[in-house]
Write a protein that binds this DNA or RNA. Structure first.
Lengths: 365, 365
DNA sequence: CTGAAAGCGCTTACAG
DNA sequence: CTGAAAGCGCTTACAG
């Protein structure tokens, strides 16, 4: 059916080895031979069978990226960045989504794609440490995001506590004192939103205040609807905040929608800060102040680490597990700053400069 | 390095053929033998090498989905639906993004992943018919979306003209007469937004009006910024519409942001309709009226067609190229209907019922 | 119900 | 600079 190396070799009157050399752009092929082979390749329309190459090389050049949900723009944007970062290493990305379910996350982490992928980048939500420590086999693994584990894997994440503190600090500086936190998840022993919630507590304490736990709202997930439900629940209980710090941007956007429905003005009555810096937040009717993780740095570091570990399988000494901290910054927009007529942000122009800048964070320990 | 079939066969004291039979769940294996083999598999931690299987079978079970941009929620949501639809056929999805560039689209359509993928689903923006007619090789191909080609490939798309007419009809019914169209692209000989623009023209003509071409705004792409830029340009030229029909939801959202900036009320001063029904539109501060294509039907039909064509390569007669039309409906929200206090849509509840329903459209011709 | 053997299309020491 | 041959780990007629 397909045209094979052998067919090309036959036509060019050389061995398959020589054709292989030409196809793989190896040196030490006589110019005349190369031309003859190339001519045969073109004439026959030969295209290498990647599948055979994979089997022979023991490598596929495919890495998997497993995210909770592609419907969350943060992960869609991150996936785009990972695809680009991987292309720089000539790696192809296979996308998996786990729905944030522990079982699916554990399955993926065990490398259920047997030998199809060379490595895996996983952004877990509910995965537990034991899922990782009992991991027998599976490809090299790099972890992404807020969840941390005592397991020997590279972990790429911004300093979530510091980032959350910066956001809360910003709200405190605006004079807000009743700052709600949206996106705690009670069902999980170890809070996915652990660190951001801790940042909320620490910063309020550092300012001399007392964290009001009745302003911490649980959600069952992390999407727009969860934000709307949590915000509505808070208001229905009569716990009206003067500011909201949400686990992420879509939760913040869902909350903002409910605030408007209830006739509360953003930011005059309630200031709102999100997390992720998704494109959508910049174009919301009231543009969203947010913590902006450096997505392309996250993607780049993750792919670099993974590629290094894949290479290390060939006998190089593998580096110890690293903890890498890409940068982040607070982007102040209308949901906290209002819209002074003369300094209105223009969403059609390049992204505005950050206002507060958190420490970009050095590499791991 | 890995454990192979042979290792398992050795330990179980059977031939590799028998192990293969067990692994692939073939019948006609004596229960005792099966148990013995299974025990060996577990003890050795054997996992099939997919790469070898692919080579031998000549199939990988991987299909590619190429979309312009994962950052556009419509494509992210569609990708999720395709991944799910493919899982039902035990197919894995490889995601490519083309940035809507003709060269990249043409490259992908030629199946540049040589034998790695069994088939391709492509949603083209700038691809031209000749790119397809000169296509020599490449895997089975299914086309998605508004662009149509005179080429023998399956094409899955809602009735874009009818859908656009329904949207414009809705605006006309509200008494709007200066309806702008956002998202024409002049640089391309054959408009990507061809059909939706045609629907705009036809419906205005059908209502006895005259399409005002000065209200057709070109964009350089199809994202939020493009919508904002186009809207601003229209207003700066003094061409104030009383309604906007946008090529898609993100363009509509970008436009809505600018309208608000300029102190225009939505929908009182300007009603807005988008296209795609992305989740974001439901939670916008003024929720967005939109044409909702049936994304899961699109995904399902595309995967079904592709899987059928892949199977047809084994000698079955391939069906002629089909044109399949999944359904769509108009979802009316606040950006055209306003927010009557007593019927406010609750974004935290299930999606609202459609108000106008376009013909769901029969299967192909 | 099970086995021995060929072959999918490459890459890679090993020779020359 | 080029060739002959083995082998990556499977699946699959073909026998028995």
């Amino acid at each position: 059916m397909g045209v094979s190396l052998k067919d090309v070799a036959l036509r060019a009157g050389v061995s398959v080895k020589t054709v292989s050399n030409v196809v793989n752009d190896f040196p030490h092929v006589a110019p005349g031979t190369r031309a003859r082979v190339q001519e045969a390749i073109d004439a026959l329309g030969y295209r290498p069978n990647l599948t055979a190459r994979h089997l022979r090389r023991g490598r596929t050049g495919i890495i998997a990226l497993a995210v909770p949900e592609l419907g969350n723009p943060y992960f869609a944007e991150l996936a785009g960045a990972v695809i680009d970062a991987a292309a720089a290493h000539e790696q192809t990305v296979l996308l998996d989504h786990t729905a944030g379910l522990r079982d699916k996350e554990a399955l993926v982490s065990r490398g259920f794609r047997g030998h199809l992928i060379d490595g895996l980048i996983l952004s877990p939500i509910q995965l537990e440490a034991e899922d990782l420590t009992t991991r027998q086999e599976g490809p090299p693994l790099v972890l992404l995001g807020e969840r941390e584990y005592d397991a020997p894997y590279d972990h790429i994440a911004i300093d979530n506590v510091a980032a959350a503190r910066t956001a809360v600090r910003h709200l405190l500086d605006l004079g807000r004192r009743r700052i709600a936190f949206l996106g705690a998840r009670e069902e999980s022993a170890r809070q996915p939103a652990h660190l951001r919630l801790r940042g909320w507590r620490e910063e309020i304490l550092a300012s001399g205040g007392t964290p009001d736990e009745s302003l911490v709202a649980a959600t069952s997930g992390y999407d727009r609807r969860d934000g709307a439900v949590a915000m509505r629940a808070l208001l229905d209980l009569g716990r009206r905040p003067d500011a909201v710090f949400a686990y992420n941007d879509v939760v913040a956007l869902g909350a903002m929608r409910v605030l408007t429905e209830r006739g509360l003005r953003v930011p005059e009555d309630v200031a709102v800060v999100g997390f992720d810096d998704i494109e959508e937040g910049r174009y919301a009717t009231v543009s969203l102040t947010t913590v902006a993780p450096d997505k392309s740095a996250i993607a780049r570091l993750a792919v670099d680490c993974l590629v290094e570990r894949i290479a290390a399988q060939d006998g190089d000494a593998a580096p110890p597990a690293r903890r890498l901290r890409p940068g982040h910054r607070l982007v102040v927009r209308e949901s906290t700053a209002g819209r002074p007529a003369d300094t209105a942000e223009d969403p059609a122009r390049p992204p505005p400069p950050s206002v507060a800048r958190a420490q970009p964070g050095p590499g791991g320990p």
